[in-house]
């Protein structure tokens, strides 16, 4: 397996996890379910952080490991950083 800058854990995922610091404004190639995919990463992505591998609409599920990790609080274009600024947790929400 060649060294990749980002990994997608499950073909259903709409996010990738950076395994080294990426970007900004670079093309990143990775494998999604065995298929090579290239995403233009717009934001700087720190090691361990996520970016969208396809466009995500406000209110859509954000998916990693093939499971929902939260909902998008705004539209997120492919290649943009996905984190607490645009992802809302659905669990343990006493404030809601």
């Amino acid at each position: 397996m060649a060294t990749a800058k980002a990994v997608v854990m499950n073909p259903a995922d709409n996010t990738a996890t950076a395994v080294e610091a990426i970007g900004p404004d670079v093309d990143v190639s990775m494998s999604i379910g065995g298929k090579p995919v290239t995403v233009h990463v717009v934001d700087p992505i720190s090691f361990g952080h996520k970016f969208a591998v396809r466009d995500i609409r406000k209110g859509d599920k954000i998916v990693k490991y093939g499971e929902t990790i939260g909902l998008a609080t705004q539209d997120i274009q492919a290649g943009r950083h996905v984190h607490v600024h645009n992802l809302e947790s659905g669990r343990g929400r006493g404030d809601k």
Partner: peptide, 11 residues
């Protein structure tokens, strides 16, 4: 470290 929610941490 990049974890955005308890769901992501748990998974």
């Amino acid at each position: 470290g990049g974890l955005s929610s308890i769901e992501e941490k748990s998974l």
